[in-house]
């Protein structure tokens, strides 16, 4: 199955990716090839098979809901483009 332009537009929006015109055209073509390639999975004999949940069959480990890390905010925020008083700044959302 191949993807049309509207589908790729929709996927790019869901993924929050702005594509240039060239990238968009290339994505329609290459994503169609990828989807056509993975379509062969439909032929696999999976009736009654339970989907894999974990590659080595481990249960999800849980821990007590307690603070274990120290306060490293200032160091971490050195990687942010725009912060003020410990807050991350973004363009205004509500007028």
């Amino acid at each position: 199955m191949s993807l049309d332009k509207d589908q790729v537009q929709h996927i790019a929006m869901l993924a929050r990716l702005r594509l240039s015109d060239t990238e968009f055209a290339e994505s329609v073509e290459k994503l169609s090839r990828i989807v056509a390639f993975v379509d062969q999975l439909k032929n696999a004999p999976t009736a009654g098979v339970v989907p894999m949940a974990h590659p080595v069959n481990e249960a999800q480990r849980l821990r007590a809901d307690e603070v274990t890390e120290g306060d490293d905010r200032d160091r971490i925020q050195q990687n942010a483009v725009s912060v003020s008083d410990g807050l991350y700044l973004v363009p205004k959302v509500i007028e």
Binding site: V38, L41, K42, A44, P45, T46, V49, V50, P51, M52, A53
Partner: peptide, 11 residues
């Protein structure tokens, strides 16, 4: 796709 792939992965 995704669920089917996880089944094939088990196979």
């Amino acid at each position: 796709y995704y669920l089917q792939a996880q089944k094939v992965r088990q196979l």
